[in-house]
Design a protein around this nucleic acid. Structure first.
Lengths: 217, 217
DNA sequence: TCATTAATTGACTGCGAGTCATTAATTATG
DNA sequence: CATAATTAATGACTCGCAGTCAATTAATGA
């Protein structure tokens, strides 16, 4: 028992040290430009060994997406805990998304672009891979955080009763995400050409959103 | 004169027929899975010849992005012409974006994901390539359509005076784009799990946006 | 101690992007 | 019209890398 257990623990540590090594390389020189030999060398393993732990290069990438997802979920948990009203939680979640981008830009990219990267045409991922399954569950969890916050906001009166929590979750998250993506691509351009900062844009968007969720008149 | 002219025309036709062939292949089996030999065969040329017209595989991809951009610009022109008020034009532009996604989903993806695809880490394009330069100009033109429409709306009273045309253009376009991207990825999931259609979500978003741009009370 | 099983290795294969010396087609020149 | 000069096209080749597998080494059990 203990023996098989330790094996399993060792195996997990190896997997971790491989992603660790790969992550540094992918993030500094890109997925395509990183070779399996480089990953092997950085992980102090031979190339063959890497393949005992991951089916191929893409599967390592998926593991990195998964790590990013954990970071984001953690930020979301803290966001939810940081506010007491429904509306407050919704705003904190939006803020958390932006924090994720600011503090972990490469993970942000990995998480939100993996449907198209790395090799144009969706990453063809093995739906039976447990990591992939967990990724899907994690995605659901993310949406649930928001839907619950909206629902709570309707209960505590900080969000107007008419809004549909699910629909609104999708609309809001997509919008915030879209905004951050644009900013990610055009940040310096916006600053130079229009003297617009990221905060300006986000403030504008948050105002618009808050405005649309509260009752007026 | 006529002689060099014809050479130039021929050259352009060749380039076109190469993208044409590549586009079909990329769109059906993906960028990574398509080989230069296949492109050559489909274009009825030898591989070496392809390289006389395009520096490499990515440059062909950029040409496809460019084509997509032309389609979108065209849709935007028609959208602007289709409405008379500023607010009407803004809505028509949002609608045009969605039409682009619906009618040309692969071009949509090419245009809006090329910053990350094809090989994780931005496509490293040659900034001196005339096609790339035009792409940048085209991007500016797209934003100008929207900024002008908002400006016009303020003039004709269909949009409230407080809004900043540039800022709003960025916020709105990013939001709409984000929404369509989400829908692109999760369309069948949304329908199955929540019985939500794309139109529902877009309607919700459009309402929200319209609401935020008009004067109330 | 030695047999069995598990983990690791790196030389090897196959494939595909990009090159380049050679050949073919066009155009200019006498 | 002949042939020189220029331009276009070819495909066999190189080179690098993802992924494999027979051979080796380490760990565990009898």
């Amino acid at each position: 028992m203990t023996i098989a257990d330790r094996r399993e623990r060792d195996r997990q540590m190896r997997r971790d040290s491989i992603v660790e090594a790969a992550e540094k390389l992918f993030f500094s020189k890109g997925f395509a430009a990183t070779t399996m030999d480089e990953i092997a060398e950085a992980a102090e393993l031979s190339k063959g060994t890497i393949y005992l732990y991951y089916k191929n290069k893409e599967e390592i990438y998926v593991a990195i997406v998964h790590r990013g997802m954990q970071i984001l979920i953690d930020l979301f948990r803290k966001a939810i805990a940081s506010a007491s009203t429904g509306m407050g939680k919704v705003k904190a979640l939006g803020q958390a998304m932006f924090t994720f981008y600011e503090r972990h830009p490469r993970h942000f990219t990995a998480v939100f672009y993996h449907h198209e990267s790395p090799s144009v045409g969706p990453l063809d991922v093995d739906i039976n891979d447990p990591v992939v399954k967990e990724l899907v569950r994690d995605g659901d969890e993310l949406y649930a955080f928001s839907a619950d916050a909206i629902q709570g906001g309707i209960g505590d009166g900080t969000i107007r009763p008419g809004v549909d929590p699910i629909k609104t979750t999708y609309v809001l998250s997509s919008m915030i995400l879209g905004l951050i993506r644009t900013v990610a691509v055009e940040e310096q351009f916006l600053r130079q050409k229009f003297n617009l900062t990221v905060k300006d844009l986000l403030q504008e968007a948050f105002d618009l959103i808050e405005h649309s969720l509260t009752a007026h008149r």
